[in-house]
Amino acid sequence: MAANTAAESWRNIRSLRADPPVTLHDVLKVGSRRDVFQAGLEQAQQQFTAAAQIGYASRPLNLFYGLAQAGRAVAAASDQLRGNHPTGNQKQWQGNKHGLTFTTGTVVSAELFGSEVTVQPNLSDLFSRVSLAVGSPTDMGSVSLGQILSQIPEFVAEFGTINQWLPQLEVPGFSTAYPKLGGPKALAVLLPGIPATGSIADTDVRAVTAHYPALRDFPVFHSLSGEVDRPATSGPVELSVLMDDLVLNRTGTAWVPQDTSLYRRQEYVFPAVGDSARPVQPLMAWWLVLYSLSMVARYSPRAWMGLWRSRPARSRPNSNSSSIPPSIRSRTFSQKPSRPSTRYQPLKFAPCRFRRRVPFPRRLTVPNMTWHEREVR
């Protein structure tokens, strides 16, 4: 997954903070908005930097509040939010509440992935302010943490989806070398739950695409025999699209369906979440996840420690394993250490039967000891 390194990203953000682009000058000409924009980005960097230095016991707190401060900067710089008064103004940019609820007690009864976070938007909560700025819905109601995690490409790539929740889909689109003219074209999409080989029914494909707002209006592309068309009779399913139904992506390199999201330089199509008919933008999916984890770590530390700590502290190695997730720690410490290299094998001295872990140089002379008296094992 292509992306800048952390150092490169923060360097770009610092440049943006010091000298905002011309497109933001009209919004940030108000002194208070410019101050919040710059301070929010600086606080976000400090919070994320601090999170990288501590263990998993407290890391969710720094990560969430770092993202929240970055969200304040996004809201302050958004031309979608022009209001300045919190009363009766849907477009005000200041946010002073979470607008979310998460019951930490459900972590024990429903486990972490089955726990639900509820979106309760109002006129002054920060979640809805940032959602309006990035075009993400706020009407999803209550959604499980497992469903939100299945919307994050990094999580799905590492662990897969949770409880059969639908993941994001990669949609390459069509190169801009194609003119935006002509008849229907076949858009190849790899759909979850659809067998990779064999014949499939049109209704099965439609049942899956109905959950993806960007794909639900496209009919299935059929071959001359009337079957659902597939390239090379396996793999992706082809949908019939008109070039007029496509839009230019943000990088200007391809025609893609509407409601396609650009995330880490890759085009994705996300399913609708909860009660909403629209997909949650990746930034807000991260927001819901980090808010939920920070609530567990802050208000139910015993449950949080039990989620990632798989064995008592006294049985752990003395290394900094407390900051390693269980999935990685089990692979790391379950392996037997390799034998030392032969160049560091111990030397045995016949006169004193002394075993030394670091070998003597060959030209070293020892009083009252000839060379043949030293045996190299």
Rank of each mutant, 00 (worst) to 15 (best):
N4Q: 08
A6R: 10
R11C: 13
R11T: 15
R11P: 07
N12K: 13
L16G: 10
R17C: 12
P21E: 03
V22H: 06
V22A: 10
H25S: 12
L28Q: 01
G31P: 00
D35P: 00
Q45M: 08
F48Y: 13
F48V: 09
F48S: 01
S58A: 02
R59I: 15
P60W: 13
L61Q: 11
L61H: 14
N62D: 07
L63Y: 07
Y65H: 12
G66S: 09
L67N: 06
A68V: 08
G71Y: 03
L81H: 04
L81C: 12
G83W: 05
H85P: 06
P86A: 04
Q90H: 03
W93I: 14
Q94G: 10
G95M: 01
L100W: 13
L100T: 11
T101S: 15
T103M: 00
G105A: 06
V108G: 01
V119P: 03
L123M: 05
A133C: 14
A133Y: 02
P137H: 01
S150D: 03
P153E: 00
A157V: 09
A157Y: 00
F159R: 03
G160L: 05
E170L: 01
G173E: 02
S175W: 00
T176G: 04
T176R: 04
L181M: 10
A186K: 02
L187E: 05
L191Q: 11
L191P: 09
P192Q: 01
A196H: 05
S199K: 07
S199Y: 09
D204N: 15
V208G: 04
P213E: 08
P213G: 02
E227V: 13
A232Q: 10
E238D: 08
L239G: 04
M243K: 05
L246Q: 10
V247N: 11
N249P: 06
G252E: 10
T253A: 09
Q258N: 03
Q258H: 10
T260Y: 03
T260H: 04
R265V: 14
V269G: 04
V269E: 02
A272F: 05
V273E: 03
V280K: 00
P282I: 01
P282Q: 02
L283Q: 08
A285D: 07
W286G: 13
W287I: 07
V289T: 15
A297K: 04
G306R: 14
W308S: 11
R314Q: 05
S315Q: 06
P317Y: 01
P317S: 14
S323M: 11
R329N: 15
R331P: 12
R331T: 11
T332H: 09
Q335I: 11
P337W: 06
S338A: 15
P340I: 09
T342N: 11
Q345F: 03
C352H: 06
F354Q: 12
F354L: 15
P359Q: 01
P367D: 05
E375H: 11
V376F: 05
